[in-house]
Write a protein that binds this DNA or RNA. Sequence first.
DNA 1: GAAAAGCATGAATACAGTTCATACTAGAGA
DNA 2: TCTCTAGTATGAACTGTATTCATGCTTTTC
Lengths: 304, 304
Amino acid sequence: MLEIRHLRSLVALAETGTVSRAAERVHLTQSALSHQLKALESHYGAPVVKRHGQSVKLTESGQRLVALARSVMGEVQTAERELAKLAKTPARTLRIALECHTCFDWLMPIMDVFRKDWPEVELDLVSGFHPNPVAMLADGKTDLVIGSENKPRRGIVFHPLFRFEVLAVLPTDHPLREKRYLSAGDFARETLITYPVPEERIDLIRRVLRPAGVRPARRTAELTVAILQLVASRRGVAALPNWGIKNYVDYKYVVARSIGRNGLWSNLHGATTAEMARQPFLRDFLETARRECFSRLDGVVPVQ
Amino acid sequence: MLEIRHLRSLVALAETGTVSRAAERVHLTQSALSHQLKALESHYGAPVVKRHGQSVKLTESGQRLVALARSVMGEVQTAERELAKLAKTPARTLRIALECHTCFDWLMPIMDVFRKDWPEVELDLVSGFHPNPVAMLADGKTDLVIGSENKPRRGIVFHPLFRFEVLAVLPTDHPLREKRYLSAGDFARETLITYPVPEERIDLIRRVLRPAGVRPARRTAELTVAILQLVASRRGVAALPNWGIKNYVDYKYVVARSIGRNGLWSNLHGATTAEMARQPFLRDFLETARRECFSRLDGVVPVQ
DNA sequence: GAAAAGCATGAATACAGTTCATACTAGAGA
DNA sequence: TCTCTAGTATGAACTGTATTCATGCTTTTC
């Protein structure tokens, strides 16, 4: 029997193009989603997806179901917004903690969009540095943590947001600009300008430099613009998300290069308690974030 | 998390007005539906139904959900019809066996409506008398049995259709017409005109006359009009569904009286195998039948 | 020709939803 | 006012379905 959960899965499948990623999106294992698809196919007596090399493609039946799903999910969303207003719970708050500094940049416009749909939900940013933001969820200190950490933990749900490339940012006249991509060794004699957070929070250090035994000098700045200003004035190099520096690169204020042959990619997640994950307004927030980020930010792709 | 099954339950609740009957409609126990409602209410933080004496009324939230449900179920239905056409299964057949003779009268127009939505489904009427029609389901001799029998049986699902009153039909000048309602004893000296089926299939005999030890003379006729013609010409009395004789009573061809103080009521069900019950076209057929009967037939009420 | 990434599938498992048993409440009828 | 009936609520036990786990197979990539 067709249920809304099947529709959700199908939409995720249509949007990600593979069973595994779709499964992650709807918090299932690849296996579970595979079984689900099989059940649907035997129920309707028609294939829903077609193997197509590595990925899967929706058949005509599948597309019809996705169309249904989109429409139904839209209606459900609208209805749930209205129900939330009718609910007895008076003022609700969504407290958001950020693990990554740059996220401020895209979060603000998304909060504005969200406020239109859910005026009765109070939005708060939990500021300051926190050694273990995810633990704050369990402690009830925050409701949503946005970051890249993704180690499974009892009672905590990770919602994939998007995937982006971390680029090395150089002064326009820096000699390394000649290389197509930078390697760990290239940073050895540079000063690395970062946000004021511990080393293990900086992808470049944790995933590239430290494994290669490279420890460049470090200097910190609070704001993205401040970091870029330091780079432009040749005080060092930085590693920042592609979407965060696009404008500065376009205007030739700085130049950007990939880190490593395939680039250094990072996945952004939203973490919540299992209970919060059930709240319609939270689901809506995450969906808004994904949708808006894909359309606003350049170089952002679905989580892999 | 909201699922389509919740929406189905809510529609049933809105249409029947009580939890018990709604539960029967969606093949659940009263308890299960009660739990379901509670879960919905705690999920949305708002009551969905309000106790209102014997029955229950939907709250504003409940009504909003029912509106959602109606819309979603309509879309699902449309989509499933289209999927059925895309399915590999070539020609499918719905074989209908009737336990009650009069049912021909309302079934024909419903089959016409159904054919428009599901042109690819072949409709067959399984004719002739069958001692145990429900057993034919298990034997694969038929797909749907319409009748009043309702004893639970492994693998067989009973879908409530509607409830109607069986009225005594008398010649216009019969002395019993003076009574507001007839009792078992009143039939003692009458000839009872029935369809040619065994006694236990005739509600009046099984539920009223036999318990009272009354055994009137019997005479049979195949068609409803033939029975009415016999009654009108004073060859005996009959017991027929209210909706089947309305026109004849309105034109004073015969008169009708209740049987017993509260009338003799009968529930009509459609029985299928559990597997067939899952088929979208079958669900659609039953829904069409219910909808059309309620709007076409006078004196028809939901199953109690 | 490995290695990696992805899907399918049978068996084991977990959990949500259902049933069971029972209590409770409102109304109808004596 | 008391009893009876028809309806709903609820906790505990259970069951069946959906999910995960473990694994094998296929395609792509280097």
